[in-house]
Design a protein around this nucleic acid. Sequence first.
DNA 1: AATGGCATTGTAAGCGTTTGCAATTTACTG
DNA 2: CAGTAAATTGCAAACGCTTACAATGCCATT
Lengths: 335, 335
Amino acid sequence: MQKKNSATIYDVAHRVGVSLATVSRVVNGNSNVRDSTKRKVLDAIEELGYHPNAVARGLASKKTTTIGVVMPDITDVYYSELARGIDDVANMYHYDVLLTNTDEDPVRETMAVNNLASKQVDGIIFMGNELDHEVVNTISGVNAPVVLAGSVDSEKKLPSVNIDYVEAIKEAMEAVIKNGHDRVAIVTGPVEHAINGMHRLVGYKKALEEAQIEFDDSLLFSTHQDYAAGLQVAEKILATGATAALTYDDEVAVGIMNYLRDHGKKIPEDFEIITSNDTKFTIITRPQVTSIGQPKYDIGAVAMRMLTKLMNNETIELTQVKLPHTLERRGTTLN
Amino acid sequence: MQKKNSATIYDVAHRVGVSLATVSRVVNGNSNVRDSTKRKVLDAIEELGYHPNAVARGLASKKTTTIGVVMPDITDVYYSELARGIDDVANMYHYDVLLTNTDEDPVRETMAVNNLASKQVDGIIFMGNELDHEVVNTISGVNAPVVLAGSVDSEKKLPSVNIDYVEAIKEAMEAVIKNGHDRVAIVTGPVEHAINGMHRLVGYKKALEEAQIEFDDSLLFSTHQDYAAGLQVAEKILATGATAALTYDDEVAVGIMNYLRDHGKKIPEDFEIITSNDTKFTIITRPQVTSIGQPKYDIGAVAMRMLTKLMNNETIELTQVKLPHTLERRGTTLN
DNA sequence: AATGGCATTGTAAGCGTTTGCAATTTACTG
DNA sequence: CAGTAAATTGCAAACGCTTACAATGCCATT
């Protein structure tokens, strides 16, 4: 049971009969303090139940040992796994995490970043499908390092860690094409978003090109990222005569799958599906969903590690990190 | 594009030719400042790109407009939905959220609470299945209000918001019993945890008693909270001759379901399942899983609202809030 | 024109630490 | 034992803001 009115560094100093500076030194473990006095101070701290006031510390030292995390939605399994990676290494380096949900709204993203700045965070990790120009601007204006996790900025100005989306989608496409499909639907988010237009779609088209299949834009679908959206888009996909689909969201994939099965399609025999995020959803369904494998936790962890270096003013050789991806073959694809 | 070296309140005051106090007053929107000077100050703030330093503010005012959230795992859909409710109303009241994952480790929970205290948070929301005595102690020792969300402390000392677990489980049991089952397995976490031993199990037994069915402790299972655990426990459940199961975790429920179906059981005809958390998992599977319906988002939201009152020193009539639950009948139960 | 009272603004003392620099001790050297 | 370097400590100024309290200005009253 600790005391309600916590003691201050002054109380400790006074009790031991040393100066504030000395107490501060032992608390911060650094510098040279004689062992005997260090012990006395430590004892006093124990007895008084002294806990340093982090706010005062932050003001004096200009470091808060707090980082900000900006994410679309804590409820989204994909992002929450990134966040877990972030949090774990943040703790490892003794940083606390200030969390903000933005629902990918640029306005809220901007506000979040500014707010974090005013809270004097030592660094920021930013997640989100698209980096609005405005958002990039305010990010670069902030007086703290920022790294993107699982997000790309088209100008590649900001440090980031991702997988190679182009390559990943291309490989998924190749796998499907190899299985004999030449009409494969691709469902993503808004094409204006770089990650869709400049990565997913590009990978898709590359695979098409190599297989000498004409691109048909009626096979391109844009949806929300949820189960219901999958259910809805499935019918339209069927109407195009597509026999396979690549999806950017696991819930959407499952929605499509369930719809198709309910309408008499056999999966994977009649229709193949490959999704992108390899979340739990792909495991618990029957059949399980084939997916691009992303080291989600690691993306977060590496991003955070990178941030610690930046905050420490270490120079970083590579600022655009691409982590390896895989193709997890499961029940929605043949062989 | 804002300036890197942000201006201080002093710069603003100096530029306008007023005192710090006046600037502070307009920034805090309060008090009485002549309209003309207020305008001048606002202009200067705009021109200098002044953003108040929240750390300095916190030190001076002893309020950080930050709350701490302690949760088992951000990756767990159940908790992340609570967290979303918390975050939304926190924002509504202009609080930021400091997030900590504990994996339900009492040691880490204690550290987390102490750490948040030293960061001078204005309040804390605590989530976790079990409240270790030690943890309750350090919580009560903290100089900031704390409310539990989706967690019970056996001594009912701490403010909390939950559903009525006893009642909810009892109702689920009754539904299953009514369908003719008299051997229904119950799978929960460690019975030593209050929420299991004192709530879930009690509700289960009550229903049993009313139906005049003898309690058989070989039907009681304790597992981890994941899909694999469900797969594993399923076999044992089958061995007991049980024809239905109540689970405390949705992933476990799905694991059991998939295992049983793979072993030739028809669901719900041969075996009924009711789970507890009504997460997305219960929707995307075929069949969909019948579940107790919990207002997860609301539990978080109400807890946070309660915390704002506490932080504001308002008196609260009811500190043990129970939100209404439902029974979402889906495909793993008959009728 | 003096008086009282409210509205507005300024003064300055904190808030609890950190930290550069100076002062004091202690340890060595010859 | 003087003298100097090294190890310990203390001083006091920040850090950027809030907030009692005091001071000033202004206006209506009488």
